[in-house]
């Protein structure tokens, strides 16, 4: 799937750029993409190493086990067949908590650790398992309770009541997450894992 998305983005972008006389801008963005990626990767590397280090201590201290247990009643209904005492379940729990609290990008490192453990526990090989897909979809939707960036930017631009949209944000988040999960369940029932899928 990604190969088509990436190629389409490149070809459409280049075609539009040439047609609009924006070849210079497109060329500049291609040349600087390496530099931009390295800058982003360095930021990410710092955050990932930090949380990866802290969480391996938390795991040894038994904290992740406690949190998993607390969230198990809800999460075990979503992630069917996943070992509640396993590492994957623990990282999924941490990812969801940090997403909800909007904790400084900690959700990405936990998410990546969860994916690696899901890969081991569910023997995914080269094909995504339903639990992997469900987990990724939950991360492409927003679970954040207090969207701090949004509120700060509204305040900066003179909003009198920057948090008045919170009820709308929550309802939209819940609604969109439900739609995405239902869509996943529907697509899953349409195509069995053994089918050849791009």
């Amino acid at each position: 799937m990604m190969k088509y998305v990436i190629t389409a983005m490149l070809l459409v972008g280049i075609a539009v750029g040439f047609a609009n006389g924006g070849a210079a801008e497109v060329s500049a963005s291609i040349i600087s993409s390496g530099e931009d990626t390295i800058a982003l990767a360095i930021t990410l590397a710092g955050i990932i190493c930090l949380w990866s280090g802290v969480m391996s201590v938390a795991k040894e201290a038994g904290i992740i086990g406690l949190l998993s247990k607390a969230f198990a009643p809800v999460l075990s209904k979503l992630f069917k067949g996943l070992d509640v005492k396993g590492k994957a379940f623990g990282y999924i729990t941490l990812n969801i908590i940090s997403n909800m609290l909007g904790m400084g990008n900690a959700s990405t490192p936990f998410g990546l650790m969860a994916m690696k453990e899901l890969e081991k526990e569910e023997h995914s090989g080269d094909t995504a398992t339903p639990n992997m897909i469900l987990f990724v979809i939950m991360n492409t939707a927003s679970l954040q309770l207090l969207p701090a960036t949004m509120a700060a930017l509204r305040l900066k631009h003179g909003s009198v009541t920057p948090l008045d949209v919170l009820p709308a944000v929550w309802l939209t988040s819940i609604g969109a997450l439900t739609v995405a999960i239902l869509a996943a369940k529907l697509f899953q029932s349409l195509k069995k894992p053994t089918d050849k899928v791009v």
């Binding site: 080269d126 995504a128 992997m132 979809i137 697509f187 791009v198």
Partner: peptide, 17 residues
């Protein structure tokens, strides 16, 4: 997220998202 694994076939993940 998928790059952290060896998964190549992401199946219905993108359409659902």
């Amino acid at each position: 997220y998928f790059a952290a694994t060896k998964v190549k076939k992401t199946r219905y993940a993108l359409p659902a998202a």
